[in-house]
Amino acid sequence: GLDASFHPFMGFPSYKEVAHFPLAERAQALRDPARKARILSEKSERLAGDGSAIPPLVDILLAKIDMISGRMFALENTLNYEPSVMQSFLVRAKQAGITPLEAIYDHLSAGTGEGLIYFPIFNYNEGSLDAVRRMLAHPRALSSLSDAGAHVGTVCDASFPTFMLTHWVRDRGREAIPLETAVEMLTRRNAQYLGLSDRGVIAPGMRADLNAIDPQRLSVGLPRLVRDLPAGGKRFVQKAEGYVATWVAGEQVQREGEITAARPGRLVRMGQS
């Protein structure tokens, strides 16, 4: 997205002229026909290198934007993380008789500039998440994702447990994961792997970390960027719905999204009782 850590036009000279504008003003400037024509006639300058947080892979991908646009999708309110290739910017562009780069440009510059692009890379080569489904079926697979906050302006890791229960259990249809299997993967399996022997199952003497969930209401909303990190740093957040209540060590810490005053959590170190 235009305000995220990365988008396809970051390296274009004429985009850089307005990159410092507030988001809504930037989107309006990008809709100027003359500027649009100028940007679409340019090539991206090199983004990776010394002092840059952008990896060399980005420059390689940008050089092949037409090809990779077949795996780029508009992130709509329906929040479909397993779209058909027919919904890609490549197909949208062909249907509209324009280039894929122009289709991407129009999406990002529309409205107030808050449009986002979903770009699954390595696990989407088949045009689906079938590769992920095969991995999740492995008995030693762990369902999780965290890069310690390195890419908070690109991805929202916190949505993954909810996505596991909605997409893979409830919504996908074909090759759905049984609810009890998904719950075991999200709780006991990870706890055992991490050496957290006091949690992961509901049993006498165990730590009472519990979620009460309404499966029909369970969902995650569209990612949105907030600037609440030190020095104005930005991150993606996604608000989950359907978690009726949560208990940590037997104390209720949230109900219907409202955080209580209880703070029973503590630092956890592997191997300690």
Results as ranks from 00 to 15, higher is better:
Asp3Ala: 15
His7Pro: 01
Pro8Gly: 01
Pro8Glu: 04
Pro8Arg: 07
Phe12Cys: 01
Phe12Gln: 00
Pro13Gln: 08
Ser14Ala: 13
Glu17Leu: 14
Glu17Asn: 06
Pro22Ser: 10
Ala24Trp: 02
Ala27Glu: 04
Gln28Tyr: 03
Pro33Ser: 04
Ala34Trp: 01
Arg35Met: 06
Arg35Gln: 06
Ala37Glu: 10
Ala37Ser: 04
Ser44Pro: 01
Asp50Pro: 10
Val58Cys: 01
Met67Glu: 11
Arg71Thr: 15
Arg71Phe: 06
Phe73Asn: 05
Phe73Arg: 04
Glu76His: 10
Asn77His: 13
Asn77Pro: 04
Glu82His: 12
Glu82Arg: 14
Ser84Cys: 07
Ser88Ile: 12
Ser88Cys: 13
Leu90Arg: 15
Arg92Thr: 03
Lys94Phe: 03
Ala96Gln: 09
His107Met: 06
Leu108Tyr: 12
Leu108Lys: 11
Pro120Tyr: 00
Phe122Ser: 09
Phe122Gln: 06
Asn125Arg: 14
Ser128Val: 00
Leu129Asn: 08
Ala141Phe: 04
Ser143Met: 10
Ser146Asn: 07
Asp147Thr: 10
Val152Met: 15
Val155Asp: 00
Val155Glu: 02
Phe160Gln: 12
Thr162Ser: 12
Met164Thr: 14
Thr166Val: 14
Val169Ile: 09
Val169Asn: 14
Asp171Gly: 03
Arg172Lys: 09
Arg174Ser: 03
Arg174Trp: 02
Ala182Asn: 02
Val183Cys: 03
Met185His: 04
Thr187Leu: 02
Leu196Arg: 05
Ala203Ser: 08
Gly205Pro: 05
Arg207His: 11
Asp209Asn: 11
Lys234Phe: 02
Lys234His: 08
Arg235His: 06
Ala240Phe: 07
Glu241Asp: 11
Gly242His: 13
Thr246Pro: 03
Val248Lys: 09
Gly250Pro: 11
Glu251Lys: 15
Glu256Val: 01
Gly257Met: 10
Glu258Arg: 14
Ile259Val: 10
Ile259Gly: 00
Thr260Cys: 07
Arg263Ile: 08
Arg263Cys: 08
Arg263Tyr: 04
